[in-house]
Amino acid sequence: MSQAERHLASLVRQLANQDRVELVHPFSDLKSFAALVYVAECFGFRYVGVRLVGRHKVLHVYLVRSGEAWAQQRAAANAAAFPQVGAGGAVPGMHLNSLTPVPEAQPDVDLLTKVIRYDAMTEAGNPVQLRTIGVGAGVLFLLLAVLTGLYAVLLPLAVLTPAFMFGSLRVNTARRAKLAAQLTAAGCTPVRDEAGRERFVRPVPYPA
Rank of each mutant, 00 (worst) to 15 (best):
L96H: 14
L59H: 09
N97K: 08
P107G: 03
V58N: 06
A120H: 07
A75P: 00
Y118I: 10
Q84V: 07
Q72D: 11
R117E: 13
T100W: 02
V109N: 06
D119C: 01
A69G: 03
Q73V: 10
H95I: 07
L52R: 10
V58T: 15
V50M: 02
A81D: 15
A87K: 12
P103Q: 00
P101M: 05
N97F: 14
T113E: 15
L59S: 04
A87Q: 13
G125W: 10
E104D: 15
A69V: 14
V91D: 07
V53L: 06
G125F: 09
A90Q: 09
G86Y: 07
P103Y: 02
E104N: 07
I116Q: 04
D110I: 06
A124V: 01
G86P: 08
G67L: 14
V48K: 00
D108K: 13
P103M: 04
D110Q: 12
N97M: 13
V58E: 05
V91A: 03
P92A: 13
K57C: 08
V102L: 13
V64A: 03
P101I: 02
L112E: 12
A77L: 12
D108Q: 15
Q72G: 12
A90C: 07
Y118A: 09
L112W: 00
Y62W: 12
V64S: 06
G86A: 06
S98N: 04
P103T: 02
P101G: 01
N97E: 13
A76M: 09
G88E: 15
A79N: 06
L99A: 09
A71N: 04
A76H: 14
Y118W: 05
